[in-house]
Computed example of a mutant assay.
Amino acid sequence: MIGVRKRGEAIRQFILENVEEHPSDIVGITTSQFQISRQAVNKHIKLLVEQKALVVKGATRSRRYSLHPLIEWTNSYRLEKTLEEDLVWQHDISNLLKELPDNVRDIWHYGFTEMLNNAIDHSSGSNVSIHVKKTASTTNIKIIDNGEGIFKKIQRELGLSDERHSVLELSKGKLTTDPNHHSGEGIFFSSRMFDRFSISAGSTYFSHEFGKTEDWIIEHKENQTGTTVIMFLSNNSSRTSKSVFDSFTSHDDYGFTKTIVPVHLAQYGDDQLISRSQAKRLLVRIEKFKKVIFDFDEVETIGQAFADEIFRVFQLQYKDIELVAINTQKQVQQMISRALSHE
């Protein structure tokens, strides 16, 4: 009887840990994992619904499950100079997350205060709203301001020709429109600490998932006002903020010295990366780092001029910077090798 009870607990724990990734097919996933019938899985789900651990929506064929929120909290603030992100954390947010492990709370403290500070200092908006949703498994925080929009602001301040160039610059790190007051590290490190991190503004959506070197960008049809930041993290994550910082610093000076550049962000639509101007766009501010990893995932081909500008011309100018190419397909590697052979 004890064995049956433990198996039931294992099945229900599996459902809770996987339902957010599989809201519409969690029954099938669980059936396959434990080699039990759909009827048996549905009994466990019914119990979790009765215990208010799960929420169910929709009819039989369109039924979707989600974790029942333990906390749902929303508040709005005037974006005034008197608003301080750390006081909002102390007075409003910290208490909502008090039962989380210390390492998880540390990540939330860093990410929340950095993103709220960006809204206060850079959005040029009048209002910011904060939404916290905590379940038994995960926590999700949204910060939404009604300002200019982060990508448009970066485009304007840096004189970029396209909002999408702003995403490429954000993905490198060390980007700030106010260097006297900001290091430009907040968004970069926040995006690397959380399980999922996204920013949407205007018609552009930027996202990063932990464990993946690449960032990705989507264009929306609708033009959204302001900026929305969404941070998502498991309540039981073993990750620490220190481990993320350490992975992008050199231990001799503990500076932010390494970056990973998702090369595919430099190409739009069906464009191929062939020109020196495209390469120069990718190389903007790269001289600020000691090691640069160019991730060619999703890039099928590059031109000779593009490869030459990065791996020969730039490298000759900055010999102390280590350039590394990863996830290169055959044609891409051939072009890089050709550029290196002319050093």
Rank of each mutant, 00 (worst) to 15 (best):
G3C: 07
I15L: 07
S24E: 00
Q35N: 13
S37E: 13
A40L: 10
N42S: 03
K43V: 13
I45V: 05
I45Y: 00
V49E: 03
E50D: 09
K52H: 04
K52Y: 03
V55D: 07
V56K: 07
G58K: 10
A59D: 08
T60Q: 08
T60K: 15
T60I: 07
R63M: 04
R64H: 03
Y65I: 03
L67V: 11
L70R: 12
W73A: 02
T74K: 12
S76L: 05
Y77V: 05
L79D: 03
E80G: 08
E80P: 01
L87R: 15
V88D: 01
W89E: 10
H91E: 15
D92H: 15
I93G: 02
S94E: 08
P101T: 11
D102I: 12
V104C: 06
W108I: 06
G111E: 06
T113R: 12
E114S: 04
H122R: 09
S124Y: 11
N127C: 10
V128P: 10
S129G: 12
I130T: 04
H131Q: 14
V132G: 08
T138G: 02
T139E: 03
N140L: 11
I141V: 02
G149I: 04
I150Q: 01
F151Q: 08
I154G: 09
L158T: 07
D162K: 15
D162E: 15
E163Q: 14
H165Y: 10
V167W: 07
S171C: 06
S171M: 00
K172S: 06
T176Q: 13
T177W: 11
D178G: 04
D178Y: 13
H181P: 04
G186T: 11
I187P: 11
I187C: 00
F194K: 06
S198M: 13
I199C: 04
A201G: 12
G202D: 11
H208R: 15
G211H: 11
W216C: 11
I218Y: 14
E219Y: 10
E219W: 12
K221H: 13
E222A: 11
Q224D: 04
T225P: 04
V229H: 03
V229D: 00
N235Q: 14
N236I: 12
S247Y: 03
F248C: 00
T249E: 02
T249A: 05
K258H: 10
K258M: 05
T259M: 05
I260A: 00
V261I: 15
V263A: 06
L265H: 07
Q272W: 12
Q272D: 13
S275K: 15
K280P: 03
L283S: 06
L283W: 02
V284G: 09
I286P: 09
V292L: 00
F294K: 13
G303N: 13
F306G: 09
F306M: 09
D308Q: 14
E309F: 13
F311I: 12
V313N: 15
F314W: 09
Q315F: 00
Y318H: 14
Y318E: 07
D320H: 10
K330G: 06
V332H: 09
V332L: 10
Q333N: 12
M335Y: 05
S337P: 02
L340M: 15
